[in-house]
Amino acid sequence: MVTLRPMTGADLPAVMAIERATFPLDAWSEGMMRGELDDMPRTRHYVVALDEDEIVGYAGLAAASDQADVQTIAVLDKHQGRGIGSALLTELLAEARRRGAREMFLEVRADNPRAQAVYRRFEFEEIGTRRRYYDDGTDAIMMRRKLDG
């Protein structure tokens, strides 16, 4: 059973290890992640997923006005398939609603069908493509979900 809690600066070593393992070609820097945390709670909402005392995943949301964007979601490979990513996405959707967002957007790698399937299961729809969006030249599929009031 995992629990979710707000991410803190003290979580960054574990979060950055997951970041580099999950996104080896285009991982965020610690400075970028710290910058995101600096905007909490004003425009950002970041959470970590804990399995006992181990951070096994994290997710982040940017929200302004009536729009929210999934900034990142990652789960350690050995913990995938247990519903942790779904729990993290559910939390981001709930926070977007709490902040009054009417739509949520995200980009997902075109070569990551597993993540795309998760987002489709959560009623995200494909709305376009960003060519060569990622550092290695991979396209990003842009997705959107309308949120209930």
Results as ranks from 00 to 15, higher is better:
Q67P: 12
R98S: 15
M143E: 08
Q71D: 12
D148Q: 14
G83N: 06
V75Y: 02
G31F: 06
Y134F: 06
G31W: 04
S65N: 15
I127N: 07
A10I: 05
A117L: 01
F122T: 03
F23K: 01
P113F: 05
A17R: 11
D111Y: 03
F122R: 09
L12P: 03
L89I: 09
R102E: 12
E107G: 03
L50C: 12
G9R: 10
N112P: 00
R145D: 04
A63S: 14
E95V: 12
G100T: 02
G85A: 03
I141F: 04
R5G: 09
R34F: 11
R132V: 14
D26C: 09
D66P: 09
M33P: 02
F23V: 03
R20T: 11
R144G: 14
A10P: 00
A49F: 11
L88D: 00
D69T: 14
A94V: 10
E126M: 15
D66T: 13
A140V: 13
A17Q: 08
R114C: 04
Y58M: 13
Q71M: 15
E123G: 10
D26N: 10
T90Y: 06
I18A: 00
K146H: 15
R82V: 05
G81R: 01
M143C: 12
M104D: 11
N112A: 08
E95Q: 14
Q71H: 10
